[in-house]
């Protein structure tokens, strides 16, 4: 659930996702469920960490969410056709666990902010 991915530097990256009609997180109301944004953030983080590991010549493993904290959701959620833009900053990294701060917006309006740890 990531269409576009742009590396800014060692600490920051951004990604986009245009919500397709058949996205599995779309609700009966036609809106993306909040878990869908979390999945988009998790996949962005996994892509980013995977990229950095590859650059460092390390093995790229499957990524799992370790925890989610300080997550604030601003409803209403976006709909099919809308584009999510996520900015992600690496806050800390210890061994195989990376903590990121993420902010996802649609049309310049913040829909979610959170901290997430990814183990891989």
């Amino acid at each position: 659930m990531v269409d576009g991915f742009a590396l800014e530097d060692e600490q920051n990256c951004s990604s986009t996702l245009t919500i397709s009609d058949d996205n599995m997180f779309l609700d009966e109301s036609g809106r993306l469920a909040e878990e869908g944004i979390l999945e988009h953030i998790a996949q962005t983080a996994a892509a980013y960490v995977g990229h950095l590991r590859k650059q460092a010549g390390e093995e790229v493993n499957m990524g799992y969410i370790g925890d989610i904290k300080r997550c604030v959701v601003s409803h209403p959620m976006p709909m099919a056709g809308d584009t999510l833009t996520t900015r992600l900053t690496i806050m800390s990294q210890v061994g195989n666990i990376t903590m990121v701060a993420a902010e996802t917006a649609v049309n310049g309006q913040t829909k979610m902010t959170c901290r997430m740890k990814l183990a891989n």
């Binding site: 469920a33 909040e34 878990e35 925890d67 989610i68 904290k69 300080r70 997550c71 604030v72 959701v73 409803h75 959620m77 959170c114």
Partner: peptide
């Protein structure tokens, strides 16, 4: 719907 996740 989730409005906030303090810790998961």
């Amino acid at each position: 719907h989730y409005a906030a996740i303090k810790n998961c």
